[in-house]
Design a protein around this nucleic acid. Structure first.
Lengths: 133, 133
DNA sequence: CCGTATCCGATCCGATACTG
DNA sequence: CAGTATCGGATCGGATACGG
């Protein structure tokens, strides 16, 4: 794999641009993390993702399934059961995700400092809208 | 750094949850990549991010600045100039971002295959809405 | 040149209700 | 249990106009 070009230019049709949006969202990262130890049922996943709505989780799982990152298996029991499981492709994404997750943990403090300083410099004599961003 | 827990639970107040949303968006990744070789002016960045609007880029740069990932320096020339530069904190994020970028390049083909198969299984006899997701 | 302000359509998102 | 359907509010994002 080649290193990133100097002053890399991202064309509109750059494939990674489109893919990045699909896979790099908050819920997807969390779902892949929760499924890491093994398959899990819908509500089991939901319980581990505090605050996610049924709709958001369903959409997220569909997208993950469509992109080949997880597998959906229906268990024909009396009330229907569904199990979700990571695919090998999904596992290959855990490394990059974990790197990002660890970065957030390691640098959270410094980011907070930077934010406080920024808000003092700017929001100090102005609107509080800056913090809302 | 500890390994991720088994069946990791993401509480609502998990700091990495909030931070992830802020830093893992498409434009931020591209800006950090474009700034990698060295500082750049506003329109210089804009030219390298085909399709970004002035508003979106401004918002993105502000957020990056607020989070301490880039530095904004005003050059007092006749028409005002502004230079953006990566901070050490920003540089530390390039590694994780690059890992994700490389993943998209390496697995784009397989994701496309998975999508095609999914759309055949589902959208085959139904709505075309699935592809729009 | 580098923004901010405003408007407006598209989209997301949660809450709710309903089904096999 | 695991969804789908629908609706209204919030938010995003582009286009345009204007200011330092």
């Amino acid at each position: 794999m080649p290193p990133l070009d100097k002053r890399h230019c991202f064309s509109v049709h750059c494939p990674s641009r489109l893919l990045f949006d699909q896979i790099a969202d908050k819920w997807s990262m969390m779902v892949l993390t929760v499924l890491d130890p093994g398959p899990a049922r819908f509500n089991e996943i939901k319980r581990n993702l505090q605050g996610v709505t049924q709709k958001a989780l369903t959409q997220c799982l569909r997208r993950l399934e469509r992109n080949g990152l997880i597998l959906r298996r229906v268990i024909p029991t009396s009330p229907v059961g569904v199990e979700y499981e990571i695919t090998p492709l999904g596992r290959s994404l855990q490394g990059p995700f974990k790197a990002l997750y660890i970065w957030t943990l390691q640098n959270l403090a410094e980011v907070d400092r930077a934010r406080a300083e920024f808000d003092t410099r700017n929001g100090g004599g102005g609107s509080a809208a800056a913090k809302a961003a």
